[in-house]
């Protein structure tokens, strides 16, 4: 199945898309022949335990999961499987979180923290191999739909050097950007806990929208 693991709705300060509009756009993509099963909302520096998209998701046959994108000492991290225990332990609004502590806390709380757009200038992990113990990093966001020239190459270099597994996400801030990069999972994912399980176990890869045409799947 294909999931966009990195999207922002109007709940993020710099996004202009509503969740309902993303769902409509998923319909547009499907009518155009692309495969997309759902997306994860990774709002900047926050997590809302109460917001519930299950009806919208069910009515439109779109999986809508919730995560977060946090600002750390080692660039931005996507956090999946956020629990109340994790939000109690970590101040999501803090723009200088210790990345190593975040990864540990996430793991201890049944979540996973994954470096977002690792090749990005300024806020990608690529620039922060400064002696900190980054051995907990196993997965990074390989394909990001908002990369600028040079950033994808840095991400690839990092992945090759360290042997990381790679996800894909559009980093959509506008409706029409959703799904431009996604993650293809070999097994079904139906909730946040399963997403964490799959990301820890392997069996996924980063794809671009073009790769999702039926019969046209190819590796990156």
């Amino acid at each position: 199945m294909y999931l966009d693991l990195h999207t922002h709705s109007v709940s993020s300060d710099d996004s202009r898309a509503t969740v309902e509009q993303y769902v409509k756009w998923v319909g547009v993509l499907r009518r155009r022949g692309w495969q997309i099963d759902g997306f994860v909302l990774t709002e900047h520096r926050k997590f809302d335990h109460d917001v519930d998209y299950s009806t919208l998701a069910r009515d439109n046959d779109v999986l809508i999961l919730k995560g977060s994108e946090l600002d750390t000492s080692h660039g931005h991290f996507l956090v999946y499987g956020v629990t109340e225990e994790l939000t109690d332990r970590v101040d999501f609004s803090h723009v200088g979180l210790d990345a190593v502590c975040l990864m540990r806390a996430a793991d201890e709380c049944g979540a996973i923290a994954v470096p977002a757009h690792p090749g990005r200038f300024g806020v990608g992990l690529y620039e922060y191999y400064d002696g900190a113990d980054l051995s907990a990093v196993r997965v990074v966001e390989r394909l990001n739909g908002s990369n600028r020239p040079g950033e994808q190459e840095r991400a690839e270099e990092l992945i090759q050097r360290h042997g990381y597994a790679g996800t894909g996400g559009s980093d959509a801030h506008l409706v029409s950007a959703i799904g431009t990069c996604m993650t293809r999972f070999d097994q079904e994912v139906s909730n946040e806990a399963e997403l964490v399980e799959r990301l820890k176990a392997g069996g996924f890869r980063a794809v671009r929208l073009e790769d999702t045409a039926r019969g046209g799947d190819c590796d990156h």
Binding site: D71, V95, R120, F121
Partner: peptide
């Protein structure tokens, strides 16, 4: 008024 980090480092909006 809020902070964030981006390609050009720490910023305040």
């Amino acid at each position: 008024v809020y902070p964030k980090t981006g390609r050009s480092g720490k910023m305040v909006f």
